[in-house]
Amino acid sequence: MDMVQRPLDLDAVQAFVSVAELGSFTRAAETMRTTQAAVSLKLKRLETRLGCRLVERTPRRVQLSGRGASFLDHARSLLEAHERALAGFTAARQRLAIGMSDHVAGPELPALIARMNAQDPQMLIEIRIGSSAELLQSFDRRELDTVIVRLHAGRADGEVLVEEKFGWFAAPGWRRRAGEPLPVATMAEPCGVRAIAAELLDAAGVPWTEIFVGGGVAAVAAAVMAGLGVAALAPRMLPFGAVDVGPKLGLPDLPRLPVVLHTRLKEDRPRDTLAALSAAFRSAVRG
């Protein structure tokens, strides 16, 4: 069989699509639950098969070549056709129930859901947003297969996905009134970030008062941008233009807070979908 007739290796095509979408051989390897060397080998074989370079590799980033960009849509279509063919032999959709802390599920959530769906279009995905404590309780009651939450006191299990920077943010032009306690917008209890922020302010002797309590990060961010006060949040959770006023006001440094994955999944199919979610999340948070 000559080069033109020989079929493409679907694993190699999947490796190429993962590298293209995640911009990283490391993240692609996490998604495919293999090694970076194995992904590189698959991609090299695909490039040899097609007779052209698909990816330009530099020390700092991965970028598609012109031929690679042209091939990407065809590669996706090939994988989708493969999934549709398999779906005809699949029984009921498998369900994957995931809980995400409100401090974790940021503006990247649509892209994360799309990445999971691309990994397995036949998987029925359920996502529940809540506080870390509430989600961990649901996980322990086996109501959720997986949770991605902030590190919780008293829990030593789970896999740390990333450690995320936090700061004291306020709206542009916001000024603290002299002689008054620091106005702080927070999440409702129980919230681990709220507890850490309060403990650090108290330890530093900074007088403060709760000016706003939100039922979610979006509400707290809205209060900040409305000029009500400051909040302890991750930069990616805030609209463009929010300012970290911690250094200027002499507020205590906030620690980098881990994002932890807890799962009981053992079957290959849902674990593949979860691996795609984890890799995409790491890429989104680390940029």
Results as ranks from 00 to 15, higher is better:
Asp2Phe: 06
Met3Lys: 12
Pro7Glu: 09
Ala12Val: 05
Val13Arg: 14
Phe16Ile: 08
Met32His: 07
Arg33Trp: 03
Thr34Gly: 09
Gln36Gly: 14
Val39Asp: 05
Ser40Asn: 08
Leu43Phe: 04
Lys44Val: 00
Arg45Asn: 15
Glu47Ala: 12
Arg61Cys: 07
Gln63Ile: 13
Gly66Ile: 06
Arg67Phe: 09
Leu78Gly: 01
Glu80Trp: 05
Ala87Tyr: 00
Ala87Trp: 01
Phe89Tyr: 13
Arg93Ser: 13
Arg93Ala: 15
Ala97Pro: 01
Ile98His: 09
Gly99Val: 02
Glu108Ile: 04
Arg115Glu: 15
Gln119Val: 02
Met123Ile: 03
Ile125Tyr: 09
Ile127Gly: 00
Ile127Thr: 10
Gly130Thr: 00
Ala133Tyr: 03
Leu136Thr: 04
Gln137Asn: 09
Glu143Ala: 14
Asp157Trp: 10
Gly158Phe: 08
Val162Lys: 02
Phe166Lys: 00
Phe169Thr: 05
Phe169Ile: 04
Pro172Asp: 07
Gly173Ala: 04
Trp174Met: 07
Arg177Met: 08
Pro183Tyr: 04
Thr186Ser: 06
Ala204Asp: 13
Pro207Thr: 02
Phe212Thr: 03
Gly216Asp: 15
Ala223Pro: 10
Ala226Ile: 01
Arg236Gln: 11
Met237Phe: 02
Phe240Glu: 14
Gly246Arg: 08
Lys248Ala: 15
Leu251Ser: 06
Pro252Leu: 04
Val259His: 14
Val259Met: 12
His262Phe: 12
His262Ala: 06
His262Gly: 04
Thr263Asn: 07
Asp268Tyr: 04
Leu274Pro: 03
Ala276Asn: 05
Gly287Val: 08
